[in-house]
Design a protein around this nucleic acid. Sequence first.
DNA 1: ATGGTGGCCCGGCCA
Length: 255
Amino acid sequence: MRIATWNVNSLKVRLPRIEEWLGDMQPDVLCMQETKVSDDAFPALTFMSMGYESVHHGQGQWNGVAILSKVGLDDVVSNFAVGEPDTDARIITATCGGLRVSSVYVPNGRSLEDAHYQYKLRWMAQLRSHVAALSSPTDAVVVAGDFNICPADIDVYDPAKFVGATHTSEPERAALAELLDWGMIDLFRTQHDDAKLYSWWDYRAGDFHQGRGLRIDLVLGTKSVADRCTWSVIDRNARKGQLPSDHAPVIVELD
DNA sequence: ATGGTGGCCCGGCCA
């Protein structure tokens, strides 16, 4: 089974690229983030014509998450399963091919002093509660999406530039570690111990072509999932060419 | 170099 996650940064603008990419890569499951469309405007028929069932949790011009699947799409949970619902559309969960899959768009945080940063930390805690409420560490669980957190300095093109900034701060990494401690494993990193490879590059200042990126898009899996994982890639080709998203898809293959 | 680009939808906000 092939599972992918991709922050598409506007489904409206990106749909031609997404269709092309789905045809090329043929993932069984695709988690998307930042669709930036309402549920009414979600192009479910386009995906259906390509063999995918789909579910979407959107709010219009900002945020929005979706799951596409060729291997079943059941027991859908929009938003958090426990606690206060998020007013932003940032998480949707479904069972696909025996996996409990969540597509997540973690808040950016903006800056360490911003209220949005505290929202990000609370959001990560609620994500752990959500996963723990719906599943156990011995289940086959996948949490995939844009975490807006670099797990370690190896995931940052220049860690010195991010001292005092979001995405690399200790509290953010601790919040991610809480989720890993519950029983999740960073599948790309288990396949590539020391690779300096990134999934996001700022549109500005030629960052992509200069190699100034971050690895913030993650596919996390419980141990039974990690044991099935045979390879993982970040498809940086999808960041090239006409009208690319600022994120590249991350793909994992499971036996 | 505190800039730059690209999405929202048409004036700034968000990333």
